[in-house]
């Protein structure tokens, strides 16, 4: 990388999210203080953002709007709204009782009522303030919990990435090609086995996402007997990364196959095949 300025190529890599984290940090730092590079990155980000604009439109559930407004603290939550109503009504009743008592005691009803109205107003303001603070605290608490959860998830995902990278760089790891059964299918994939971690990874791209009620299932075969290694699905981009432990290793298996089965997976292989892989051709 040029120590001073960022090339168009680097700006593209930054915008598309393909840059290694340490280089990305450098670029982010640099564009904060370099207007010309920031402009180059902005142009790249405009092009990258277009990828999302091409996505087919789907309508979110109707409840989402209500949830967003409430989470943002714009709309009061149900139970809290009711507390306000009850508090207001209680204050009103109290005012009437005190006013009657004042009348019987020959005290000026009007003065008492005015005083009580003012008191009611102050109480109402305090109630509103307290409720606003409560909503804000709930929102902040929830945000903290989400961040903690996200941090834990990222740590877990990072460990998964690290394991795969370790496997791919390990002398004990081997890779097998997988072949699509349908020649018209553009899906591609690889099967990675790490004898040290006793883990197998299956990575695929351009594999159509299964609809509800269906899943992909990966099997290994020994003498015609198929053992399931689990089920997975792709994301909408057709990308999948599935990993699982195989304590017994892959040495005793001849081949692996990916089939389409009903949701939750099948006990016996029954659906059509998508991928096959010759495990005897696992290579380092």
């Amino acid at each position: 990388m040029t120590p001073e300025h960022i090339s168009h190529e680097q700006a593209d890599e930054f915008a598309i999210g393909a840059m290694a984290p340490d280089v990305r940090t450098y670029v982010a730092f640099h564009i904060d203080s370099c207007a010309s590079c920031a402009e180059i990155v902005r142009e790249s980000e405009e092009a990258a953002a277009a990828l999302l604009l091409a996505v087919p439109r789907r309508q979110p559930p109707g409840r989402l709007r209500e949830n967003v407004l409430r989470s943002a603290g714009i709309r009061k939550a149900g139970p809290i709204g009711r507390i306000v109503q009850v508090a207001t009504a209680s204050a009103g009743v109290a005012a009437v009782i005190v006013a009657i008592a004042s009348f019987t005691g020959m005290v000026s009803v009007r003065d008492q009522m005015n005083g009580l109205r003012e008191e009611n107003g102050r109480l109402q303001t305090q109630i509103d303030d307290a409720l606003s603070q409560k909503v804000e605290i709930l929102a902040l608490t929830r945000e903290v919990q989400e961040q903690e959860q996200l941090t834990n998830d990222l740590k877990t995902a990072s460990r998964g990435d690290r394991d795969l990278i370790l496997a791919l760089s390990s002398p004990n790891a081997s890779v097998a090609e997988v072949i699509t059964v349908d020649p018209n299918q553009v899906a591609i994939g690889r099967l990675v086995w790490d004898a040290e971690q006793k883990k197998v990874w299956f990575i695929a791209a351009h594999l159509p996402q299964r609809p509800n009620g269906e899943t992909y299932q990966i099997w290994v075969n020994s003498g015609g007997r198929y053992v399931s290694l689990g089920t997975f699905n792709t994301d909408v981009s057709g990308f999948a990364r599935y990993e699982t432990f195989v304590p017994q290793g892959l040495a005793s298996y001849e081949s692996a196959v990916v089939t389409i089965e009903h949701a939750n997976g099948a006990l016996e292989r029954s659906g059509p095949s998508v991928f096959v892989s010759d495990l005897s051709r696992l290579r380092r």
Binding site: E13, I16, G17, A18, A48, R190, A205, D235, S237
Partner: peptide, 16 residues
């Protein structure tokens, strides 16, 4: 798409 939608770096895409 692997980079933008999949969140993979170039190195990860090359490996995958």
């Amino acid at each position: 798409e692997l980079a933008y939608f999949g969140g993979l770096t170039q190195q990860q895409i090359a490996v995958a």
